[in-house]
Design a binder for these strands. Structure first.
Lengths: 153, 153
DNA sequence: TATTGTTATACTCTATAACTATA
DNA sequence: TATAGTTATAGAGTATAACAATA
C-alpha cells in the first residue's frame, strides 16, 4: 500500500504521537491551555497575563523605570506604553518623574492599585494551587520549574 | 521606610523571584525561548513552527481533511487556509478532492514535499537533541513531557 | 439544515523606525 | 551623542460572521 492511497478516505484517529513527543510543540500547547485558564480565572478582574505580571513586578519593585519593568518582562518599551496607559487609566498605577533624571518615569501602584494587586495575588495564588494540583503536587511543580529553567528564557 | 520612597531612585537587581515561581509565567518564557531557537534552526528552510507541525501531521496522516488537520493543531479552519495556501504555493502540499465528499479537501505531501519534510524532520531531530541536552537528558525530557501533559492542552 | 472551505474583518501581540525631551 | 518615553506602522496570530458549494 502506498503512502497516498487515493481510493479511500483516511479515517480513524489521527496519528499525533510523533508531534506529541516534540518538546516545543507540547510546551506551546500547555502554555496556551494554562493561559486560557488564567484568563478565565481573571475574567472578573479583567486582567490579562501581561497586565498581572506588570502589576506584580511594580508592586514588588516600586519606583523602577518604565523601561526596566518592560525589559524584565520581555516587552519592547514601545509596546509597553499602551499596557501601562491602560493600568494608569484604571487608576492602578502612576508614573512619577524621577528626581535625578527627568527623562524617565518611575512606576508605582496607587493605593487602589495596591488593594487591587492584593486581590489579584489572591486569585493568582488560587489559580497556582490549581496548577500545582494538576501537575502532581509541590515536588512535581518544583521539578517542572527546574526543567523549564534549563530550557532557558 | 515606606514602600514608595520618593527621595531616591530604586536600583540594584529587580526582584523577579515571586514571578519566577509562577508556573504560567515560566511556561510562557520557556516557550518563547524555545520557539525563537526553533525559528533560528529553521531559518534556512523558512519554516515556522505551525508550518512544520502541519507538514509533519500531513506526512504522518496523508489524505486527511483540511479541517481535521487544522483542528488537531488548534488552528481555526478559517486561519488554516492561508497557512496551507503558502505550503501549496511552495509546492510542498496538494489539496485533492475526496471521492466520497466533494466539499472536503484531502491533504497530501507532494514528492517535493516528502523530500522537504524529510529534511525538516532531520533539522527537527537535531534541534530536539539540543533541547533534550539542555533539559538534562532523555529521562528529564520524559519527565518534562509528563508534567506538561498533566497541565493539559 | 449542516458541513467544508473560503473571504472579510477586527483585535491582540510583536517588531522597527522615527520623533521629543532630556542627559 | 546617547537614553527614555512616545507615536506610527506593519506583520503575525487569532476570533467571528457570512457566503458558496455540497451533503
Amino acid at each position: 500500500m502506498t503512502q497516498q492511497d487515493l481510493s479511500v478516505a483516511a479515517d480513524g484517529p489521527i496519528a499525533t504521537s510523533p508531534l506529541d513527543q516534540v518538546i516545543g510543540y507540547r510546551l506551546r500547547r500547555a502554555q496556551l491551555h494554562v493561559f486560557q485558564q488564567f484568563m478565565d480565572h481573571f475574567a472578573e478582574l479583567e486582567l490579562r497575563p501581561a497586565e498581572y505580571s506588570t502589576l506584580r513586578l511594580i508592586g514588588d519593585n516600586p519606583g523602577r523605570k518604565q523601561s526596566e519593568i518592560a525589559e524584565i518582562l520581555g516587552i519592547k518599551r514601545a509596546n509597553f506604553v499602551a499596557l501601562i496607559n491602560g493600568l494608569d487609566q484604571r487608576g492602578l498605577t502612576v508614573r512619577r518623574q524621577q528626581p535625578g533624571d527627568r527623562r524617565s518615569h518611575a512606576l508605582y501602584l496607587t493605593p487602589h492599585g495596591e488593594a487591587f494587586a492584593h486581590r489579584a495575588n489572591q486569585v493568582q495564588a488560587d489559580f497556582e494551587a490549581h496548577c500545582v494540583e494538576r501537575v502532581g503536587g509541590t515536588a512535581a511543580r518544583d521539578q517542572l520549574l527546574t526543567l523549564l529553567e534549563r530550557l532557558g528564557g
